[in-house]
């Protein structure tokens, strides 16, 4: 087990490093650089001024030198300086990351609850039309643009009914509504996977045996169906980290909330390379940590996984 954990952590670090490197290469595609854009707010800056400032922030170095000095900076806890916001990257992100974390994690929990409700009612309800309706909810959730739903809710709840503020004022509604909007969207893939795997479990003979023994439908569902269906849903939950971030960017913009959304847009618009890199580091780390946790819980649900190494397909089959 210890070796397994060590290997997974090694892989996680590798993924973070590769993600960081990939984005370092991607930002080189941007047509300008943070210094030129920073200095050109009022008038096109002179080449000398630009050169001087580039030298000060190291943007005049060869790419490889920039890359390694950034990378080594990370180990000293130096994440670079965001020119666009006039503060160190760590401060810029640190000031708002909590807001996004609260939004994203609440939305995730809500989404899982939504998904469970959908799956439980789809499995247990006997009325056919209602069941069909419920089964079709996740595709509907997935098809409604998040920004549109958010804007309509604000229009109705805040402007027409006056029950919530247009601004994040800390009230329950100003937190709950954005969480709801994001959760609706995130819940769709989780619910769909859960529905499918529950169906698969229900198609197996042991469920019939249980029924024949006289077990109640809800007992079968919660005691056996859900337990067996949970593992696949957990995998997809790990993957929703990226989805949550993209959704947060849009939800935060709609609800004028502080958070990573504002930072993402600012970093790209100002071509603030250091800020982009900081964001990638953060999201890649979040992704691997969540998936690491999922991977470590996984064997507890299904001990067979441990034997086959990394989760995924049975290894024996790969030639």
């Amino acid at each position: 087990m210890a070796a397994y954990i060590a290997r997974r952590i090694g892989q996680a670090l590798l993924v973070i490093w590769l993600a960081y490197t990939l984005v370092f290469l991607a930002v080189q595609l941007l047509p300008n650089d943070p210094v030129t854009i920073f200095l050109s707010a009022d008038a096109a800056a002179s080449p000398e001024t630009i050169a001087a400032m580039k030298a000060q922030y190291g943007y005049d170095q060869p790419l490889l030198v920039q890359y390694f000095s950034q990378l080594t900076g990370l180990f000293r806890g130096d994440f670079g300086y965001s020119l666009a916001s006039g503060q160190p990257v760590a401060d810029r992100i640190g000031a708002v990351v909590g807001s996004t974390l609260i939004l994203a994690s609440s939305a995730f929990v809500t989404a899982v609850v939504f998904a469970l409700i959908v799956v439980a009612s789809a499995t247990l309800i006997r009325i056919t039309w209602l069941k069909r309706l419920i089964i079709n909810l996740p595709p509907l959730f997935a098809a409604v643009p998040v920004f549109w739903l958010g804007l309509v809710l604000l229009q109705v709840l805040s402007i027409q009914l006056g029950v919530m503020s247009l601004f994040p004022d800390g009230s329950f509604a100003s937190v709950a509504v954005p969480v709801f909007v994001l959760a609706i969207h995130v819940s769709a893939p989780i619910a769909q996977v859960l529905l499918k795997s529950t169906e698969t479990v229900y198609a197996q003979p042991f469920i019939d045996v249980l029924r024949a023994k006289g077990a109640s439908p809800s007992w079968i569902f919660f005691r056996h169906g859900l337990k067996n269906a949970a593992a696949p849903a957990m995998t997809i939950s790990g993957i929703t980290v990226g989805t949550l971030l993209a959704g947060s960017v849009i939800t935060e913009t709609v609800f004028a909330r502080a958070g990573l959304g504002q930072v993402v847009l600012q970093s790209v618009t100002a071509q603030d390379v250091a800020l982009v890199q900081g964001l990638v580091l953060l999201t890649a780390t979040a992704f691997v940590v969540v998936n690491l946790v999922v991977d470590l819980i996984y064997p507890l649900l299904d001990p067979r996984i441990l034997k086959s190494g990394t989760h995924g397909a049975p290894r024996a089959l790969a030639a």
Partner: peptide
Amino acid sequence: VKYLPEVAHRAGAVQTGQ
């Protein structure tokens, strides 16, 4: 000083006294 990037909400913001 607050921020209201969505154009559609600006009229409503003053109408509702927010």
